[in-house]
Amino acid sequence: MATAIKETNFSFPGQTGFYRGKVRENYYFEDKIVIVASDRISAFDVVLPEPIPFKGQVLNQIATKFLEATRDIVPNWLEMVPDPNVAVGKLCQTVPVEMIIRGYLSGHAWREYKAGKREVCGVPLPEGLKENDRLPEPIITPTTKAADGDHDQDISRAEILRQGIVSEELYSLLEDYTRALFQRGTEMAATEGLILVDTKYEFGINNGKVFLIDEVHTPDSSRYFYADGYAERQEKGERQKQLSKEFVREWLMANGFQGQEGQVVPEMNEEIVKSISERYVELFEKVTGEKFVPQDYSNATERIEKNILANL
């Protein structure tokens, strides 16, 4: 097994700040941001103890592909990719609302529905739906960050506007971008025999202009089903074959962990880590339709630092 990149701790000329997120390191400069995609993995808002080889490269390269493929819909933050694990782009002020859009009743929305709720984030849902059913039309179910920054909180459009989190004009624009991006993602997924089930988009402001930021249509931010056999599986009440990080969440839940107080992350032995790594490589190849070319891990942090310095 390759040695995974658990973290980086660089100090660059002209650097003005640093922030370590759940899975990425953000290096701030006066007018740009350098993001290093580590191999850390999180689920239920918890960073798991073992990093996953190649995960950072997979996510960075998938995000790059879809950012480039959606520039005609909305401008985005990305300016260059000097290393398979690195993205460099415009420093934006983050809009404090994540735009989640769902075409199917899966994941969190299904758990809410199963619990008896017929409304998610102020959006009504019809009776009689089963898990993974296609919704009558895609719905936007936004979240906003809690004060401690740890957990995403469901919120409705009406409540966002009532609290003045963003203006109605800006929120309407984000809705338009979200629907157009989801349509493009759906079309691109279909060419690879996939269904884009749900995904999230984040936006930022730079010089008064809205930019798409963060990752786009990656398996960490999106859920995909295999299109082949979807209808038959639904009709029989079988589990859908999917490409997403949900398999990690399912493994954790099966071992008694959902990120709740007092719960302990199950042991991540070498076999589990290897299997997750292989799934991420499979995700890359299926989502992009391209062969994954793993990077040399022997001097990964030195390689990353060198490539960043050469492009500052």
Rank of each mutant, 00 (worst) to 15 (best):
Glu131Asn: 10
Glu267Thr: 15
Gly17Val: 03
Val281Leu: 13
Asp150Gly: 02
Asp148Pro: 08
Phe66Gln: 05
Glu168Pro: 00
Pro126Lys: 08
Pro75Cys: 05
Phe292Thr: 09
Ile73Gly: 01
Gln183Ala: 15
Val123Phe: 11
Glu187Asp: 14
Thr8Asp: 02
Ser172Pro: 00
Gly193Leu: 05
Val248Met: 11
Glu267Lys: 14
Cys92Pro: 10
Thr64Pro: 01
Lys90Ala: 10
Lys117Phe: 12
Arg179Glu: 13
Leu312Cys: 01
Thr301Leu: 13
Leu67Pro: 04
Ile308Gly: 07
Asn255Glu: 06
Gly122Leu: 04
Ser277Arg: 10
Asn299Thr: 11
Pro126Glu: 09
Tyr280Cys: 05
Leu78Met: 13
Leu243Glu: 06
Thr144Asp: 02
Gly89Ala: 06
Pro96Asp: 07
Tyr28Phe: 15
Arg102Glu: 03
Asp72Met: 05
Leu309Tyr: 02
Glu305Lys: 13
Arg40Met: 04
Ile155Glu: 01
Glu270Thr: 13
Lys245Pro: 04
Val293Glu: 14
Phe66Ala: 05
Phe54Pro: 00
Tyr224Met: 10
Thr191Leu: 14
Ala69Leu: 14
Tyr297Asp: 15
Glu25Lys: 05
Glu285Thr: 04
Asp220Asn: 12
Ala231Gly: 10
Asp150Thr: 15
Pro51Cys: 01
Glu290Pro: 01
Asp176Trp: 01
Gln93Ile: 13
Gly103Phe: 00
Arg179Leu: 08
Glu159Gly: 01
Glu282Ile: 05
Asp214Lys: 15
Met80Val: 11
Pro96His: 10
Asn206Ala: 12
Leu194Trp: 05
Arg249Pro: 09
Gly259Ser: 12
Ile213Lys: 07
Val265Gln: 09
Gln258Gly: 09
Gly262Pro: 09
Leu48Tyr: 00
Glu267Trp: 00
Gln263Leu: 11
Asn307Cys: 11
His151Gly: 01
Pro124Ala: 07
Gly204Cys: 03
Glu98Phe: 11
Asp198His: 00
Val273Ala: 05
Phe12Ile: 04
Phe284Asp: 07
Phe292Ala: 09
Gly193Ile: 07
Pro266Ile: 14
Leu173Glu: 15
Glu168Ala: 13
Ala63His: 05
Ile73Asn: 03
Val58Asp: 05
Ile308Asp: 04
Ala231Val: 12
Pro138Trp: 02
Glu261Phe: 12
Lys117Val: 02
Pro126Gly: 07
Glu238Arg: 03
Glu25Ser: 13
Ala300Asn: 14
Glu250Trp: 08
Gly89Gln: 06
Ala189Arg: 12
Val120Cys: 12
Ala231Cys: 02
Lys236Val: 01
Tyr113Asn: 06
Asn9Pro: 00
Val216Leu: 15
Pro13Ser: 08
Leu135Met: 11
Ala189Ile: 05
Ala189Asn: 08
Pro13Ala: 06
Leu194His: 11
Arg233Gln: 06
Gln258Val: 14
Ile165Val: 15
Arg24Val: 08
Ala254Pro: 05
Ser167Met: 10
Val47Trp: 04
Val86Cys: 10
Asp152Tyr: 13
Ile195Ala: 04
Pro13Leu: 03
Lys90Val: 15
Arg71Met: 09
Glu271Thr: 14
Pro219Ala: 10
Val86Leu: 08
Gly122Arg: 01
Val74His: 02
Ala254Val: 05
